[in-house]
Design a protein around this nucleic acid. Structure first.
Lengths: 198, 198
DNA sequence: GTAGTCTGTCTAACACCGTTAGACACTAGC
DNA sequence: GCTAGTGTCTAACGGTGTTAGACAGACTAC
C-alpha cells in the first residue's frame, strides 16, 4: 500500500529511499511515454527511467504491465470525459444525434493524439459499463437519462446507447481515415435516428 | 528463393537436409498456431516447432515475423472470400442490404474462429484496396458492380461500400458481443439503405 | 538515543522473444 | 568425384516482462 501524498517523482539516482514513486506518478509517466513512442513502444524500463527509477521498483506499486495499461486507459478516459459534462437541456432526438456526432468526433480526435490508447479502452470497455465512480460512468448516465427524458424507454435507451458507443469506439480504434470515419458516422447516426423516432 | 513443389512439412528432427520447408507450409503452420493460441501467442519458435524445425530456418523463407503475419492474413481472407463468389443477380437495394448483412455476420463468425486475425487484416486493409489478384479484390469488385447495376453512381457506390466494409471490419476486430454486433449492424444498414435509396 | 519494523528502492537473474552469423549436411550438375 | 548451391542447424545478441532477495532510509517505541 503506497503512500499517496508525496507525488514528487524525480529523485536522486541510485539512492535507497523509503519514500519514492506514486501510482499516479507512474500512470502520468506511462501516458507521456505513450505520447512520445505510442503504446507499442511503452516499456516498463522506459516508464521507470522517466521517473528516475529502475523497472523492478514499479512492481512495488502495481501487479504487472497489464494493470498499468488498464490504469492509463482509465485516466485518459476520465481526462476526456471531464470536458463533456454538459448534456441535459436537449429538446429533441435530433439534438441528441448531433451531440453524439460531435462527441464521437471529439473522442476520435482525442485518441488520435494518443496513439494506440483507444485499443486499451476497448479491451476494458465491457466489465464496468455504467455503475461506478469515474467521470466515464457519469457521462454514460447523463446520456442515457437525456434519452429517456425524450421519451425513449429505459432499457431500449441504454441498449441503443451502448450499441452506438461500442461501434463508434470500434471505428476509433480502427483508425480510419477522416472521410471514412465521418461518413460512416453519418450512416450510423441516420440509422440510429430512424430507430429512435419510430 | 524457395522451391515450391515439395510441400511436405514434417521431417526427421535434426537432419541437415537441402530440401525442407515451404512458404505455404509455414503459413499453414502459423494459421493453426493462431487457431490454438491466438495471434498474441504466435511465436516464430512455435511455428517452427510445428514444422519440426528450428526458428532460424524460417528466416530462409521470409524476411521477418511481420511478413509472416501479413501472409497469414491474406491467406485467411482468400479462404473466406472463396465462399462468397455469388453476387450478381440482385434485383433491389433491399436484396443488396440483406446480402451485406449475412456477409458481415459470416465474416464475423469466420474471424471469431481465428482469434486476433481480424486485427491483422485491418492493418493491411488500406494499401491494396481494389486493384489486384486475390479473391479479396474480386469480391470487392463484384459487390461494387452489383450496386452500380442497381443505379448507384460509380464513385458513390465505391465509397459507400468502402465505408460499410471498414466499419464492419472495425466492429469485427472489436470483438463485440453477439447482440451488440447484430444490433449495431441493423442500425448501420438502416442508415446505409436510407443513403442508397435517396 | 537506541532498537526494531516497515517501506521502497536496488542489483542480479530468469525465461522468453525476434533476429543474425556462421557452420555444416545434403542434393544436383558437371 | 568434385563443386556449387540450398536449407537446415547451433550459438549468440539485445530486448522484453517479471521475480528474488539484499539493503538503505525513515518512522515508532521505549
Amino acid at each position: 500500500m503506497p503512500t499517496d501524498p508525496p507525488t514528487t517523482a524525480t529523485r536522486a539516482p541510485s539512492s535507497h529511499a523509503a519514500v519514492g514513486i506514486t501510482v499516479a506518478a507512474i500512470a502520468d509517466a506511462a501516458l507521456s511515454v505513450i505520447r512520445a513512442v505510442g503504446v507499442d513502444g511503452l516499456t516498463m524500463r522506459g516508464v521507470a527511467e522517466r521517473l528516475g527509477v529502475r523497472a523492478p521498483s514499479l512492481y512495488h506499486h502495481m501487479r504487472n504491465k497489464a494493470d498499468l495499461l488498464d490504469l492509463v486507459a482509465r485516466n485518459a478516459f476520465d481526462e476526456f470525459a471531464a470536458d463533456e459534462a454538459a448534456y441535459g437541456e436537449l429538446r429533441s432526438i435530433d439534438e441528441w444525434i448531433e451531440l453524439t456526432r460531435t462527441g464521437s468526433l471529439e473522442f476520435r480526435a482525442f485518441y488520435a493524439a494518443h496513439p494506440g490508447l483507444a485499443g486499451l479502452m476497448q479491451a476494458k470497455a465491457t466489465p464496468d459499463r455504467d455503475q461506478g465512480d469515474g467521470s466515464r460512468a457519469a457521462l454514460i448516465r447523463v446520456q442515457i437519462e437525456s434519452l429517456t427524458r425524450l421519451g425513449v424507454p429505459e432499457p431500449r435507451a441504454r441498449h441503443l446507447f451502448e450499441v452506438s458507443a461500442r461501434w463508434s469506439l470500434a471505428a476509433v480504434v480502427a483508425n480510419l481515415p477522416d472521410d471514412l470515419f465521418a461518413d460512416g458516422l453519418d450512416v450510423f447516426l441516420a440509422g440510429l435516428k430512424a430507430q429512435l423516432t419510430t
